[in-house]
Amino acid sequence: MTRKRIVATVAHRVAILAYVLFALFPLFWVLKISVTPNDLLYSEGVRLWPSRTVFDHFDFVIRHSDFPLFFRNSMIVSLSTAVIVTILSSLGGYAMSRFSFRGKFWIVGLMLLTQMFPLVMLIAPIFKILSPLGLTNSLSGLILVYVAFNVPFATFLMQSFFDGIPKDLEEAAMIDGATRFTAFRQIILPLTLPGMAATLGFVFTAAWSELLFALMLISGVDASTFPVGLLSFVSKFSVDFGQMMAAGVLALIPACLFFFFIQRYLVQGLTAGAVKG
């Protein structure tokens, strides 16, 4: 019995370790390439760690390329998108969770539909709609598009967070003298903060990694985002792996940091009946 349990425990830890290694190895490789000097790149291609490490690639990317600008643009776009989407999807998710109304079926249907087609299909029409408004080649246009793309899923997410909060609470608040909106703001929202954090992080990473529309709606360097900049390393004749991966490491930092802290709220928030008592 005890031996069996020991074996099971060891197997469990080994399996976890295997998953962690599998998850981290590719990221480790990005880091490794980014600190490998160019002359060792090919000769030590398979070694786990180069015999000599340098920070030349980072130096180049930070001081001699447009990446700081791209980084700033991406930050602005992703943060604004995440904040706006979180606000809109909180409102929408609340309506979906707390009211039963005639249009609900159609709204849910519409939101599901938006998840079903290749977004590539929308590029030309969106370009046609945005360009007379002066919203192409601008960060605001990109934010607008990203917000729309991310709102449906975020609304479903927020709805499931709200579903986890007992209805009694806002009824009690309404009897205590609050309007429905006050009850929403003072009672329900504070309890959904973890859920909102999760949505914020989720949308941030999604916006941070979007490539297609960033590529198509924006043509100048001024409003380019990180992914587009990163791709410019590939489109040259020879790929500069070291610089590309140094830029990649920089791109990873905010997204990973964000996600690292919010992922547990994502699990918590999606757990049914988590917010009680």
């Binding site: 007992p166 009694d168 609470l169 009824e171 009690a172 608040a173 309404m174 009897i175 205590d176 003298g177 609050a178 309007t179 009672i187 504070p190 309890l191 917010v275 009680k276 008592g277």
Partner: peptide, 20 residues
């Protein structure tokens, strides 16, 4: 009238205390 304007108080089976 909305609940807030009826000036009544209610005790719920679940108590519905504000957790925060």
């Amino acid at each position: 009238l909305d609940p807030k304007d009826r000036d009544i108080a209610m005790v719920f089976q679940s108590y519905a205390l504000y957790p925060h």
